[in-house]
Each structure stands twice: as C-alpha cells, then as structure tokens.
Design a protein around this nucleic acid. Structure first.
Lengths: 153, 153
DNA sequence: GTATTAAATGAAAATGGTTTTCATTAAGAA
DNA sequence: TTCTTAATGAAAACCATTTTCATTTAATAC
C-alpha cells in the first residue's frame, strides 16, 4: 500500500463503487490533517466549520463505510465514544499503538519497541491459529495506566 | 492474592467498608460459576432465576463496584454490551486472553503462549514507562478474526 | 448541457445499553 | 431492638449510535 494521498482515497472509493461526495471528502480531509483521536462528534464539528450543512448522521454513515473499506480504524478506549483515525497506510502516523491514561483519558501514540512486538505477534498468532483453528486477521494491543500529570507523585 | 473463595470475597467487601447484601452475593455467585463472558443483562437474568427481586440497576451498580475493587474485569469486545468476568485471582480460569470472532462474536479464552507474552510485555512496558513517563498498570491484548465455523472454507 | 437514476444526504425519531433519581428497604453497629 | 446509612428497585433520564424517509446530488447516458 502507498502513502497518504487524496487521489488514492478517491480512487479507492470509486473502485469500490461509491461516489465521491462533499461530506465524504470533508471527513477524509479532517482525518488526514489531525494528529488527534477524533470521535464522530469531533469530526462533525470540524467539518461543520467549513461545510455547515453536514449532518452527524452522515458522519457516522461515512465512518462506518470507511472502516469497512479499511481506510479508517475505529477504537474503543472505554469512555463511551468511539475514536477514529486513518489506517496506517493512509495516514501519516504509520503503525502505532496506544497508551491510555485511566484518569484524564489522554492517549499517547507510540511506535517504539515494535520489533519485539512483531516477533511476539508472529509466534503467538501462528500458535493460536493452529491450536484453535482460528483465522486471525487483526489484533489490539493497548496499555493502560497513568500519565505523568495524573500520577500521584 | 489467593484463590477463588467466598470468604475472601466477603472479607474484601467488608474490609472496603461495604455491606454484604443478597444481590451482591448473588452476582458474585453467578460470576463464580460460569465459564462464559456475561453481560450485565446475562447476569441479571441468571440471578433473577433464584432471586426474582433483583433489579438490573443493582446489577450495573454492583458490577461497577466490583470492577473498582479489582474483583471483576470488564471487557468491551465491540458489540455494544460490556462483558464481565472474575479477575484472575478470584476466578478459576487463571490469567488468559481472548480470541474474538468478528462474525459470530464467539469468544475463545486462551492461556497458551504466555511465556512469550510475558517477556514481550515486560520489555515493552519497561521501555514505554521510561520513554513516556507513563505508569502502566494494565494491558489489553486481543486477537480478532474468524472462528472455524464462520470462516469461509 | 440536460435528463436520468440510484446512491447519498440530513432531520427527526427510534434504539438500546447504561446511569441517575428518589422513595423505600435492610445490613450491621450500638 | 433501635438506629443510621448504605443499598435497593422502579421509573425516568441519558446519550452515543442507528434507522426512517423524503429530498438532494453525483455520475452516467444522451
């Protein structure tokens, strides 16, 4: 897969038989420009600034579509609202995981220590697939705890 | 921590300044007896059979309390309802993780390949804590995919 | 450019898991 | 047994997300 690129997005959507609409484009733009982990409402508000006609429903619908197409990833960090980010291949962040603060909900992206992780995942996925006859397509690795500001000194 | 044991539960609750009530006891009983991953409603229905006065509200309230006390773990597998199980130290399952089928939502517990995992976690947590000044208390590792019945052959 | 047609949209209503409110009950100490 | 306060249950509220449905619009054909 290639890097973040509008033409690729558009192409992908066309190829899949969908139309390139203004709301669709706007949502992708917002996701492409932020480094944050946005909720549907966050995205709605951001798009609303330059495209005030957008409806929250449309945001949800398009996010679902983009997630299905693999261009966006949905995360549930456990505070009610789902968060969305561009998939590795479409965003500028590259492959990363998250540290989640249990107090302030701050989320830190990290992409260190990935060699270890890849090794661990390869071995484990192989072993699990075989033992449980289960086709693994995906994994979730998240660390929870307290960030420096929330930790009692 | 010690093994699954009613007297420990009760003691723990008392020690924390809470009262031992019939609904509380019932919820712990249900969680202690099942091997499944129960939702609040599942627990409500199970308790309801032998304690028909139980209210769903009470189930939610007590689950929250038990989670706070660390006796129960809450999981969000991503299909709307949270699932609950006894914490490692209180249940009979021991430390384990989950394989989640994206189609039928079946959840398989596994506790194999843990040596690798422990190694990976130790190294990674150590590295992340230091680099991001973040106190890690907890982690979530989950594999998603298709179980043998849902996988197109 | 215009007509055509099905996909996409937006507003409002519905959904459904979870939380809150509040009057009542009951656990545990005195 | 009394007393205090935590705990309970029913009903209502909450709130993120989905559904409904009439209207708009992107993309294709003319």
């Amino acid at each position: 897969m290639r890097r973040h690129c509008q033409h690729q997005w558009r192409g992908q959507i066309k190829v899949c038989g969908y139309r390139m609409t203004k709301p669709r484009q706007s949502i992708m733009d917002v996701l492409g420009k932020t480094a944050e982990h946005l909720s549907a409402e966050d995205i709605y508000l951001a798009v609303h600034k330059f495209y005030p006609n957008i409806g929250l429903t449309t945001v949800y619908r398009n996010l679902e579509l983009l997630v299905d197409m693999g261009m966006v990833v949905k995360f549930e960090f456990g505070h009610g609202k789902a968060k969305y980010e561009l998939a590795d291949e479409y965003g500028k962040k590259g492959h990363h995981h998250h540290l989640v603060c249990k107090k302030c909900s701050k989320i830190i992206d990290y992409s260190d220590f990935m060699k270890d992780e890849v090794q661990f995942l390869q071995r484990t996925e192989k072993g699990l697939s075989a033992k449980y006859d289960f086709q693994i397509t995906d994994h979730l690795i998240q660390f929870y705890g307290y960030c420096n500001r929330c930790r009692e000194k």
